[in-house]
Amino acid sequence: MELLNTLKELISISIAGLAFPGFNFHVKPGLYPIGNPSKEAPILITSNYFVTYKRVTASLKKQAIIAWLLVVDTKGVNVWCSAAGRNFTAEKVISQITKSNLSKSVSHSRLILPQLSAAGIDHMKLKQEGWDAKFGPIDINDIGEYLSNNCKKNPAISQVRFPVQKRIENTISHNVFITLILLPLVLLINILANPIGFLRPWSEWLLPNVLFLFVYIWVFGLLYGITYSRIPFRSGFLKGLLISIPFVPLCSFIFFNETTLDFILGIGTLFLYSTVISTDFDGFTPIVGMDFFEKDLILLALSSVIIVLIVIIAPLIG
């Protein structure tokens, strides 16, 4: 059963970027006892995303915390995304409190919300209903420290972090997403660029273009994800551009070395792939907002136009 759950967790993380509605990664909303909680035990609140629930309960057990865990129906979406998407709101928390008869299980009115739910939850609305809501730490692994410190936070537990383990997880999720977007696109371009399409031997186009792209996405994506926090700049586009400066010419030299034109076209195409991957990864990090992402997309669009023009003009010049 544990193995099955771990497998489900891995699949869930891998396809998280696809937001495919057919997959059931919901946990039944409700009130769950952690340990054997008394009426005075703290009330913790979380989303009903399967991975969140699994990690929260595992962490609470590891920290030997006895509490009530109120799981709110956030449509199976994680805390931050559901709060930002207005699926984790004060109204939803109040509704779940009522449905779960919370006041019958506890003798106090103190709620501890995950800090990142503050993007969707107005604590004043909970106060109006008689609940004293506090925003706890960002990471559930810090809840023990938070509780033992009289529900006081220090900057270390209230600021978002993006450690290497999370970066690798998010890179895998992003790579699955970007593979399913870019591969069919490049396949289509190859077919449209050659009117006889599939009549050409597959070894002439499938291997050098489509399979190469597949390998490139995973190698560059992992390299980028692992080194992400060490690359200067906040912009994903600029980070991708910087890491591409040594990486892309080297790849082009190894794989597209038949003529100078091949080499130049290889550089242009690989710069485009790299910056698309790095810019899109913005959305898979917890440290980039939508406004920031839009700015990055403008840079990507401008550079893509320049690269596409070079790729079209270079063969004409010779």
Binding site: A118, D122, G289
Partner: peptide, 11 residues
């Protein structure tokens, strides 16, 4: 450094 999450504005 603002991420535009609007948590401060809301609360």
């Amino acid at each position: 450094s603002c991420l535009d999450c609007k948590a401060c504005e809301l609360n």
